[in-house]
Design a binder for these strands. Structure first.
Lengths: 377, 377
DNA sequence: GGCGATTTGATAGACGTCTCTCAAAAAAAG
DNA sequence: CTTTTTTTGAGAGACGTCTATCAAATCGCC
């Protein structure tokens, strides 16, 4: 009935050695005779001992100090990413993980470096940042790592930086998926695909475009790819470049927008004359605007990178590295395709993976401010 | 640098009351004057106190005892479900969750009841089972629940049983998604969709079919739906019913198979004469056969219910109920669409690049994974 | 002021692990 | 045989919370 799970003391008794010896074995302290090691291992096996993580964490009383640096600005995706992080904060704190969320101007390598400098001085175990292809950032990442700070790139990798890991989707695969979807939607008919990117210098944008191009050219020879629109993720630019194209020629049968600035695209689409067939439209990332457009039938599909999964994986990875263990093998995050029908419900926060934490809510609520406080000994 | 997160003692000191009073407040023990409650709450807020779940779990030293009952047999999906559960076992044990995984003949209500009886006698906190529409099962579920055992239905609901929750996808949404996908793939052309189900009496199959029908008839009037093939999830039956259809008429432009027995469908598809255009094919659930077919280009898309997410949600939910708290509001699991390009890898690969992996040092902390390895050996 | 009821304080043991220290025992080396 | 080295044992204190118990203080009420 109420059987107890075996503890280290049980293991010691079963192995016929002392607790100290068992401890030396399971915590790799060395200085144990081989035969004792074997007996301990055997006892662990026999009893089915599994370390009680609650007790282990408690005894170490370690607080992990992580930081996430997210671009600020109007980009809805990053706003969403930030919101997910904020929502995770309290939950994480209950597991003694102190997550600092910092904003930074997008694509400003120097500001990022400065922020990283400040962070590293405040004592921190790991940091997650959105990678850019930038030499000074790469160098700063190297500095942090040699100072023993774990560094992850999130959403977009930093190609030449010695980061511990990249957590995000494979953007080439995302582009290929878009290409497949667009190809399928033509049902064998001819067509012309118009790609829109923010900047070709952004690795993720370039990779998505390349992936789409690959799939379309190799699998759908009846499709043609129009010259790429560079929209800098700004909706006015996108709109201004797009309008003449749709006005002057009616041969665009599909649009693939790999980045931001989609408000401009959507305005153009919504204002198409009734006679003109709307092209197949595939966007990235479920942000309010894109969701609305999909619900309205203005676009056809959204490819999402599931930011909540990215964040969960990033935190798990940071923690593994901070513990000096090999990061847990997490499944790669796959780009997910959403149509109007299987669009997730509005509250994205509910997507947050169900934790295994016992979260018995105390009657009191913790404030969101000044969680971590210096406390006198 | 070495700041500590606040503890209940810190809260007590800050509120100017004793630890005992704080404890009474946060654990709802009653008998505390209103003004004290307010002071404690204020202190919690000010300090940003968050309960240390590791310590809480440890002090309670509670072991959750759950069971999952999964149909045995050749159904690849359930084999997969079982494998996922097995893989979770050790991880769960570390969190003091003892998960028992039991097999049972599929669709055998009496055997299920018998098993449930035995389980309930061994003392168990909760059980997850694949629901069937069966009166004796419904009654047994009611018994368990009144005995204080949490009961979840997994993958398929038990319509009239008073289970605590159903964890699975909305099958109507899945069908609608299939309908949308099939519609899109026709690119405006006419077509005829052939649905294949195991049995119309299976609620999930019926709902998927209904969802597909809904979307296709309302959004794609150029598409026609052929009479439904009932294949009983057996590949020979499916094959035998399918062959004459593809031999005699060439008007089927899409196939939607909602259940099992797809080996038969795949054989027919692979043997289609070169001249005959392969129809658009949409299946359910990433099982080895379906994966292979998608990789080979024999089918176009797989709609998956992400069993690993279902299991995570189920366990989280069981735990909530066992703790007598309201289960976390988990959103319905959404059917996910996979094409060849974004198919999850077979094994569990990681995006973490091993070249940059952290070295484990001798002075490193003990790792959970190490312990697990020891047990595995 | 005195009564009973309510509220508060002080404290102790338990949970399982980690990290120490110190001494004792066993094994290996001379 | 000693001496040195390696290996083992025993135990204590810490982590933060939960759950007790019992005594002391405070309150409301007559």
């Amino acid at each position: 009935m109420q059987s107890r799970l075996p503890t280290l003391s049980d293991v010691a008794r079963c192995a016929g050695v002392s607790y100290a010896t068992v401890d030396r074995v399971v915590n790799d302290r060395g200085g144990v005779a081989e035969k004792s090691v074997i007996r301990v291992r055997k006892a662990i096996d026999e009893l089915g001992y599994v370390r009680n993580v609650a007790a282990a964490n408690l005894s170490q009383n370690k607080t992990y100090r992580f930081a996430a640096i997210i671009p600020t600005g109007t980009n809805q995706f990053f706003q969403q990413l930030r919101a997910i992080l904020e929502a995770e904060r309290i939950r994480l704190l209950a597991d003694r993980i102190d997550l600092r969320i910092e904003g930074i101007a997008a694509f400003d390598g120097e500001a990022l470096c400065e922020r990283l400098d400040i962070l590293s001085q405040t004592g921190i175990d790991g940091v997650a940042l959105v990678g850019t292809d930038d030499d000074i950032v790469a160098q700063k990442i190297a500095e942090l790592r040699s100072a023993g700070i774990a560094v992850l790139t999130l959403v977009s990798d930093a190609p030449n930086a010695p980061r511990d890991a990249y957590i995000g989707i494979d953007n080439r695969v995302a582009g290929q998926t878009a290409g497949r979807l667009i190809g399928l939607c033509h049902g064998g008919a001819c067509g012309r695909v118009l790609p829109i990117v923010g900047a070709l210098s952004a690795p993720d944008h370039a990779e998505r475009l390349e992936g789409m191009r690959e799939t379309v050219t190799s699998l759908y020879p009846d499709l043609d790819i129009a010259p790429v629109i560079i929209g800098r993720d700004e909706h006015e630019i996108v709109e201004n470049k797009l309008r003449p194209i749709f006005k002057n020629s009616h041969d665009i049968t599909a649009v693939y927008s790999v980045g931001g600035g989609n408000a401009g695209l959507l305005r153009v689409l919504r204002s198409l004359p009734d006679g003109q067939n709307r092209p197949i439209v595939v966007l990235h990332d479920i942000v309010p605007q894109a969701r609305e457009a999909l619900e309205d039938g203005v676009i056809d599909a959204i490819i999402d990178q599931r930011p909540e999964v990215e964040i969960a994986n990033a935190l798990s990875c940071l923690r593994s590295i901070a513990d000096r263990r090999i990061p847990d093998v997490t499944d790669p995050i796959l780009p997910t395709v959403y149509f109007k029908e299987n669009l997730p419900p509005h509250g994205r926060d509910s997507f947050v993976r169900p934790g295994h934490a016992v979260n018995r809510t105390a009657s009191g609520h913790a404030s969101k401010s000044r969680i971590l406080k210096e406390i006198d000994q």
